[in-house]
């Protein structure tokens, strides 16, 4: 009996921390989905760009490259990351809409180049990168909530909120939605396809940067942690149906919680294998994502 109790004693903590990390996977997945929806490109360079962004913040704030305050380092990195995102899009722009195969190979190429850049500039070091937030925490009914958790939630809500504001309320957002639902018709209507693509690529880069900055404090930053983060974001996107923005956000949270439960109750060592299983099962039984019915595919 006490065994059973012990089994569930940790459940609230697991769910809560799963929710927190899931928000970040959701942000990562959102970037993938925005790019995919508007340009039909599965961006395999997404994780590498996010990794580069986090390394830039580290480089600018730690004295490796510059010795800036955390805030200026983030601002500078944000600018550079967006620039790289624009460049990446410029390179593969001729391949957009060509075929899955072509664009997949091209984004893998970009990912390799970014990866190589990280290795050359920062070496194979493992670094830690903290957020400048006070370290306080409080308990709510056996649940410990830290400043980090609150920061993640606040930032996630802020990011998703502003994204949805842009998409729902601005001209660019309307163009984005039009391009997503029918790229060819919208080109005929004189919408600027390239501008919409740039919007989604830059948003993807920003979302990636934010997610990477927030996730690094819980682990560490090395040129290889990126791949695992990327796989998680991909899984979240698949669970959410790959072309639904709300799906990506919810998918991220589901994956975050599921990973926490799996690592606690089953084994922390087979995380990627677990994600492989999630991807295969989802694609086989819910090819349009788990949330197709619940959330709907629009937006």
């Amino acid at each position: 009996m006490s065994g059973l109790f012990a089994l569930f004693q940790d459940l609230p903590t697991l769910l809560w921390s799963g929710l927190v990390s899931g928000c970040l996977y959701g942000l990562g997945a959102l970037g993938l989905v925005m790019v995919f929806k508007s340009s039909r490109v599965v961006n395999f360079a997404h994780g590498n760009l996010a990794g580069l962004a986090a390394f830039l913040v580290y480089g600018f704030s730690s004295g490796v490259l510059l010795n800036l305050s955390w805030g200026s380092a983030v601002a500078l990195s944000l600018g550079l990351t967006c620039l790289v995102g624009v460049l990446a899009y410029a390179v593969i722009a001729p391949l957009v809409f060509k075929s899955d195969l072509t664009s997949t190979i091209a984004t893998l190429g970009i990912g390799l180049i970014l990866q190589g850049t990280i290795q050359i500039v920062f070496g194979a070091e493992i670094v830690s990168l903290e957020l400048p937030i006070p370290s306080f925490g409080f308990g709510v009914g056996g649940l410990r909530i830290t400043a980090y958790d609150l920061t993640v939630l606040a930032v996630t809500i802020l990011m998703i909120g502003s994204l949805f504001f842009v998409i729902e309320r601005t001209k660019l957002g309307i163009a984005f939605r039009a391009v997503c639902s029918n790229p060819f018709a919208s080109r005929v209507c004189g919408l600027n396809l390239r501008l919409v693509h740039l919007f989604s690529w830059v948003s993807g880069a920003v979302l990636g940067l934010v997610a990477a900055l927030l996730i690094v404090p819980t682990t560490f930053l090395s040129s290889t942690t990126v791949a695992s983060f990327m796989l998680t974001a991909f899984t979240a996107a698949v669970v959410g149906g790959f072309s639904s923005l709300p799906g990506a956000a919810v998918g991220g949270i589901l994956v975050g919680v599921a990973m926490n439960l799996f690592s606690f109750y089953v084994s922390p060592e087979f995380m990627n294998t677990f994600l492989l299983g999630v991807i295969m099962l989802t694609l086989n039984f819910f090819p349009d994502g788990l949330l197709e019915k619940a959330v709907g595919g629009r937006v």
């Binding site: 599965v42 395999f44 899955d100 997949t104 991909f234 899984t235 492989l276 991807i279």
Partner: peptide, 22 residues
């Protein structure tokens, strides 16, 4: 994965490769 479109296959194969070392 016989009914997956190409992009999903690439994603699934990435998961396959990452799970191998574990």
């Amino acid at each position: 994965s016989r009914r997956m479109s190409g992009i999903y296959l690439a994603v699934a194969s990435m998961a396959l490769a990452l799970s191998l070392p574990e």
